[in-house]
Write a protein that binds this DNA or RNA. Sequence first.
DNA 1: CGATAAACGAGACGGTACGTCGCGTCTTCTG
DNA 2: CAGAAGACGCGACGTACCGTCTCGTTTATCG
Lengths: 216, 216, 216, 216
Amino acid sequence: MTSTPTAGKAGRRRDPEKDAQILQATLDVLAETDYADVTIELVAARAGAGRHTIYRRWEGKDELILAAIACTDSANLGPDGLPDTGTLRSDFLALLDPNWMGGSERRLRILSSVSAMITRTTRAVDAVTKAIVDPSTAAYRFLIQRAVDRGEYAPPRNLDALAQVIPSMAAYRAFFMQQVVDEEFMLSIIDGVVLAALREPSAADDHLNEQDQPLT
Amino acid sequence: MTSTPTAGKAGRRRDPEKDAQILQATLDVLAETDYADVTIELVAARAGAGRHTIYRRWEGKDELILAAIACTDSANLGPDGLPDTGTLRSDFLALLDPNWMGGSERRLRILSSVSAMITRTTRAVDAVTKAIVDPSTAAYRFLIQRAVDRGEYAPPRNLDALAQVIPSMAAYRAFFMQQVVDEEFMLSIIDGVVLAALREPSAADDHLNEQDQPLT
Amino acid sequence: MTSTPTAGKAGRRRDPEKDAQILQATLDVLAETDYADVTIELVAARAGAGRHTIYRRWEGKDELILAAIACTDSANLGPDGLPDTGTLRSDFLALLDPNWMGGSERRLRILSSVSAMITRTTRAVDAVTKAIVDPSTAAYRFLIQRAVDRGEYAPPRNLDALAQVIPSMAAYRAFFMQQVVDEEFMLSIIDGVVLAALREPSAADDHLNEQDQPLT
Amino acid sequence: MTSTPTAGKAGRRRDPEKDAQILQATLDVLAETDYADVTIELVAARAGAGRHTIYRRWEGKDELILAAIACTDSANLGPDGLPDTGTLRSDFLALLDPNWMGGSERRLRILSSVSAMITRTTRAVDAVTKAIVDPSTAAYRFLIQRAVDRGEYAPPRNLDALAQVIPSMAAYRAFFMQQVVDEEFMLSIIDGVVLAALREPSAADDHLNEQDQPLT
DNA sequence: CGATAAACGAGACGGTACGTCGCGTCTTCTG
DNA sequence: CAGAAGACGCGACGTACCGTCTCGTTTATCG
């Protein structure tokens, strides 16, 4: 997106490793300090790069940070990377540790930094949505749907809404309240909200378990 | 020397009207531009004040913005200001419009600006907690508790968690996804999550009100 | 010229001492290093000032250096500061040491630095002319005229041309040839050129000695 | 070892025409803009060359400019190229036009650019000395000596000093004062200084040619 | 004649100075 | 003394040029 990797033109190619180094340095700095203290100079120094090398790739500070966020590997939230413990409740708990919000302090601090841009740039919203919001929601939706499929719960009235409960509440607590998202908190919303909103399957649901049922 | 009319000090009094003008100007600027573009110079110009007059009153940019936000009257979320429509569902809907997150675009933009400070300043967290988080949670808890009290629903397993569902999800949508919190969305979480997690009271519930009832 | 010293307006006055400190620092740096190595940052640091303070007073690097050159105290080349030894020859020699070209290494290095600007800026020419060229020429013209007035020499055919001989040749040697302007060299042009071009007064000149005689 | 016509190396030969193109482009750019605005990039573009091609040939910007100036053919100041009009005065005037300082505006601008380097690079001094100072002085010394030899003037006390008068004063005027060196100016120094410092030969001069004659 | 080696246009790269802007502090004058 | 005006030290911003270093292509000489 930032570079046209192999255009059949002359001239030295942009070092693709530099991209990675710079983005990594950006994330590192972002994790350590505040958005306002993220200096292009500092990022460049960390990445062993010159300032101009950064400006050649991204339009400015914001674009750089956005790109860094975007490259946060949220790929472990794909179906393959998700836990499969047998019950939805323990799946949720298993997701706590490596998951973005309850995960490392680092991930949270990085996210917090983006917030400084989210108001002004549509791109910031897109980046956050793509890197964090969508993957999280998708992961939770997958887990719930699987539990329904295996007959653990009846199909919920609104799967989409339910899938957003945990990420929303975790983010709210972590970001606006700046409080840790620990197991106690997770359990309170797992048991008190999500699982409470699910029902055990009725007898009539048995035939539908293996079929596609439109979600609305 | 004999008559010190106002206070025991000599010299010109601080113009109390300036406080209001400056805070108003801060909110105005905050509403139209980004946090990073909120310049003390600009605020001062808008307020018809000098920069030093601002620094005499607040410690710096952050404190100024915090003070400006703090003076936003969100106090209509007290028990007296809350709707009482007869059912919890319509109470929730009645809360949508005047509520902060579903409120005016202006209010959202102003509040979004705090996010730029929330990471570094403990005071920002306090301000947000005091102005937004606590009132919202308290309001929703009040509404739910009232519905339980009037026998509309059985006492939930975790009232605190449930009370935070709506503000969390609304904030997440409005802030991180930058999408409108309209009635459709509210209904999806009211019906799909909150009300789904509540049970109608059984006959036995009269005695069980204060007890845990195992899920299985 | 750079500041309007006492306009009846509000606001902090520009520190007049800063002007001096900055100009002095500029001259110092100019004397030590090359034009290209004169950094605003360095000058500011030397002067104990911020970069912005410099840019507030002068438009840029060139203007700063020009101003610094202009403030070089060439006032000791006024009639009062000139030597009066009794003979033109020893007057010339007496001028060697404190004089600009034969003077301090410092003065020469400073001049050399301006040369980098003299091509592009008309202002540079003006500054050099005002600070160096004119004072030197005027000084030599004064000395020669005084010698003529006292009857040491007959009025020269072209006083202006003669007055420029020494500064021109000293500058040429010092700047283009980068060789020292020492007493030996000075004597060679004093005796070989200037004094050689002057004549002893004829008998008829005696009456005119004390009168004004137009030069061209 | 006897006949290695080109060189014992493989690989593509350096395009000798590129040298010329680059030097020409350098001179062109030098003539129209200031030293500081002479960009390697710009020169390369003008010459239809790549920057690296320039750096392969010269060590840097300074060396390039020096080389460009060095290739300016100012060698028409040799004894054969000098005018021989019969009198020293008209010889001087005849030298005005094609001479470097009185020469084209272009030539002056180009040479002025060296001044930016003359302080830091010894090579610049050498180049200037070789290209300008020495030829000019030699030319004027030759003309004066010839006039003396033909009996037009008595041998001057210091031929070297006298030979530098015109180039020095012309350079001073052209460079430091940035004023044209026209016939009027030349006449003023020819008549007012150089010729004034020369004496018509006395009868006794035939024997005294090699002796000093005291001024008094 | 094909392999190899250098030159070449293009342009990425690490530095470093530029000139601009905002912050928070300070001084000066006016009411 | 408060208040408006604005100078001041600091430090980040984004731009430009320097000189070096790849790239892929072209051109020459040697095996």
